[in-house]
């Protein structure tokens, strides 16, 4: 499995995020955390080094991180985070009150709508998607373009698709259960919220999914 150099080590990943978001990658995750009710169970897909967990650790102890990159998963597990190797394209998303995905939906183009619907089927309350719409790959600075391009390499696949504001709006407004959209961070991202469709009477998901 081949990843861009951003994903080779958790430190590089963290540094890249600081670079991409001008030293403050936390604001956008705070915004996501603000949308999650206290005490909600959370499934965080494509969690990376889980910046979201840092905003949720006191508010939502029932948090699970999922990522396709075993290095990052191992790093999270070492930090005591309930983290699992996971491929969104093939694995069943565990149920939770809130299912999130931050800065990763573009990897799944052209199946983004299906991915959101799968997330909705597993979310009892809501789905939160945070996505860059002014991608670093289009930056006027060469270094930022390099970071943006490297961020797009996951599982050996070089991503050529990035959301524009219009493309993201087009997607979310044509996805059933769309609730709201807001600019996030410094305006380079958009945050979209959708209804969860999972039954609220079902049993809570196990802390460790059977397939991990």
């Amino acid at each position: 499995m081949r990843f861009g150099f951003l994903y080779q080590h958790p430190w590089i990943y963290d540094l890249a995020l600081y670079g991409l978001y001008h030293g403050d990658p936390h604001a956008r995750f705070k915004q996501v955390a603000n949308e999650i009710p206290k005490g909600a169970s959370v499934v965080d897909l494509c969690a990376g080094t889980s910046f979201l967990f840092r905003q949720l650790q006191e508010k939502c102890p029932n948090y699970q991180a999922f990522d396709i990159n075993p290095r990052l998963v191992k790093h999270l597990q070492k930090r005591g985070i309930n983290a699992h190797s996971f491929d969104v394209r093939t694995d069943a998303i565990p149920q939770a009150d809130v299912v999130t995905m931050c800065s990763s939906l573009y990897h799944f183009h052209p199946n983004c709508k299906d991915i959101i619907q799968q997330m909705q089927n597993s979310a009892r309350e809501k789905v939160i998607v945070l996505e860059p719409v002014h991608n670093a790959k289009n930056s006027r600075f060469a270094f930022m373009r390099l970071l943006g391009a490297q961020a797009g390499i996951v599982d050996g696949k070089i991503n050529e698709f990035y959301f524009s504001p219009d493309a993201f709006q087009d997607l979310i407004h044509h996805t059933s259960g769309f609730q709201k959209v807001a600019p996030a961070g410094d305006g380079r991202d958009m945050l979209a919220i959708f209804d969860g469709h999972a039954s609220t009477t079902s049993e809570p998901s196990p802390q460790t999914p059977a397939y991990s």
Partner: peptide
Amino acid sequence: YQPGQFPAAEY
């Protein structure tokens, strides 16, 4: 005020 600040209204 800038385009992009209120995405739902703009849409």
